Amino acid sequence: MNARIAIVGGGVAGLYAAMQLQSRGIDDYMLLEAADHFGGRIETVSAGPNDARFDLGATWFWPGIQPQLDRLVRELGIARFAQHESGDTLIERAPGAPPVRMRGYANEPVSMRLAGGMSALVDTIRSRLSMQCLHLDQRVTHLSVAKHSIEIQSINAQGNMSTHSVAHVLLALPPRLASTSIVFDPPLPEALAQSWRDTPTWMAPHAKYLAVYPQAFWRERGLSGAARSASGPLAEIHDASPLEGAAAVFGFIGIPADGRARIGEPALLAACRAQLIRLFGDEARDPHFETIKDWTASRLSATAADRTATPHHWHAPQSEAVAGSWRGRLAGIGSEWSARYPGYVAGAIDAVDAAIESISLSRESRS
């Protein structure tokens, strides 16, 4: 397969890049996604009597500080709603201490969610793309600079290799994953490669627990569904209920990845459920559905270095080589490369817009 531009990765960044290319009349592109589905670190599960949808990956965005993403959501016609925050918050201050009920507060800026989960963004963008340009089950393993092109090698689940020839590559995956899973020939400049390896992959060290119920019984008691805990295993809990159809809470598991592996998922599920009973009462005992999504287990989003959590966001690494064979041929467009919102969904939109503008200007200068 040959094309002018290759997009490596089919999460929000890759799909949005494809949509932006098409909108500029650039239709000679290919998108190569290693998994058998699109979405990347966005994952939504259907559960409950009406198959309501719940996010196990990226969940929120903030229109007040992320106008690009907000504008895209509106242009695509995706319904949105504010995170439920009305009611009191529960706090477990120390292991063994009973939960304390405190007056809740509304976050500013307002956290917003998408009707149908964040996958609604993935699905809506994908529906606008040329399906013949999208290729699942194509894990890119090598990128090589040839005289007038970049040669791409990819492999599918059956071990079959494919070769592709393009003029430009957009890396729509985390910098650390790109630098450790793809062989670059010639090698990237060492300073650039090191900065990519040193950039944490947001969300990769974390695990989420989700419990779905027929009703939001905590709201009936004047609780917001939010909790903070020093007892665990859930360190931070939020109401995850959709606008209609079911109710849910989710929490971030506060145990590091290696500890989660030692405990095992069945015991961890039981411990999370016991914590919800401790906090919200006996009605939390029998969720209609529960699951744990451990992102460290995903080889397509996490590396060994990502097993240790980073407590804060970071400065984005440089997205392109400024000299050498890769100059002007390769650009990072994953969320971590965004200067304004690294690690957020909005960061993917921001990084793509910057890269596509550069490609468009380059194309104009050659015409």
Rank of each mutant, 00 (worst) to 15 (best):
R139F: 03
R139T: 14
V140M: 04
V140Q: 04
V140R: 03
H142S: 02
H142Y: 02
H142V: 15
H142C: 10
L143M: 14
L143H: 07
S144M: 14
V145A: 13
V145L: 06
V145Q: 12
A146H: 03
H148Q: 15
H148T: 14
H148M: 03
H148W: 01
S149K: 02
S149R: 12
I150G: 06
E151L: 14
I152S: 12
Q153W: 02
S154Q: 08
I155F: 00
I155M: 13
N156Y: 03
A157K: 12
Q158F: 06
G159H: 08
M161V: 15
S162W: 01
T163G: 02
H164R: 06
V166E: 09
V166Q: 08
A167Q: 15
A167C: 03
A167T: 09
L170M: 14
A172Q: 06
L173M: 15
P174V: 01
P174R: 02
P175K: 04
P175S: 06
P175I: 02
P175E: 04
P175H: 05
L177P: 05
L177I: 05
S179W: 00
S179E: 14
T180I: 03
T180V: 12
S181R: 15
S181Y: 01
I182R: 07
V183W: 00
F184D: 04
F184A: 03
D185I: 11
P186W: 04
L188V: 11
P189G: 05
E190W: 00
E190I: 11
L192G: 02
Q194T: 15
Q194D: 15
Q194P: 00
S195F: 01
W196Y: 07
R197Y: 01
R197D: 04
T199D: 09
T199K: 08
T199N: 10
P200N: 10
P200W: 08
P200V: 09
W202K: 09
M203W: 09
M203Y: 14
M203Q: 14
M203V: 13
A204F: 10
P205A: 07
H206E: 13
A207V: 07
A207P: 09
A207T: 08
K208E: 08
K208T: 15
Y209M: 04
Y209Q: 04
L210M: 08
V212A: 11
Y213V: 03
Q215T: 15
A216C: 06
A216P: 11
A216T: 07
A216H: 06
W218A: 09
W218C: 08
R219I: 07
R219V: 10
E220P: 00
E220T: 13
R221G: 01
G222W: 05
G222I: 04
G222F: 05
G222A: 08
L223I: 06
L223M: 10
L223T: 07
S224E: 07
S224M: 07
S224V: 05
G225F: 04
A226Y: 03
A227Q: 11
S229W: 07
S229N: 09
S229M: 10
S229H: 09
A230V: 02
A230L: 13
P233L: 10
